[in-house]
Amino acid sequence: MPFKIIASQCTSCSACEPLCPNVAISEKRGNFVIEAAKCSECVGHFDEPQCAAACPVDNTCVVDRALPRYQAPV
């Protein structure tokens, strides 16, 4: 499941954007968003999702349970 950013909690600090190994995070209308198709949950890059680790607001970068879990290519 890719991550998503809860817009109402995003402070637009940009801490997450440069840390994303897949360049899946961008700014849209003053808030940051994660492009689900690019999000790999940092699998193969880091032990934990960098957006969630860097975000200063708890529970702002969260798993998007509406979408399927990321499957690493074999």
Rank of each mutant, 00 (worst) to 15 (best):
L19E: 09
D58P: 10
F46Q: 11
P49A: 08
S8G: 05
A37I: 07
A52M: 12
Q50V: 11
K28H: 14
F46S: 12
A37N: 15
Q9M: 06
S8T: 13
A7M: 05
V74C: 08
P68M: 05
A72I: 05
C51N: 00
P68Q: 12
A66N: 12
F3Q: 06
G30T: 08
Q50R: 14
L19Y: 02
S40L: 06
C61A: 15
A52Y: 03
H45Y: 10
I6T: 15
P18Q: 04
R65M: 09
M1K: 11
A72D: 03
E48Q: 11
Q50G: 08
V63S: 01
S12G: 08
C39Y: 00
N22T: 15
E48H: 11
Q50I: 07
C13Q: 05
K38Q: 13
S12V: 04
Y70N: 02
A52H: 13
R65A: 13
N59I: 11
C10S: 06
Q50D: 06
N59C: 10
C10R: 01
S12Y: 06
R69S: 13
P2T: 07
G30V: 05
F46N: 13
T11P: 01
A53Q: 15
E41L: 13
P73M: 04
S8P: 02
E27H: 06
A72V: 04
I34E: 04
K28P: 00
K28L: 09
E17P: 00
V63G: 00
Q71D: 01
E48R: 11
C16W: 01
P68W: 05
S8N: 13
C39I: 04
C20N: 08
V43C: 04
A53I: 13
C55G: 10
S40I: 11
P56W: 09
L19W: 03
R29E: 05
A66W: 02
C16M: 05
A37R: 15
I5W: 08
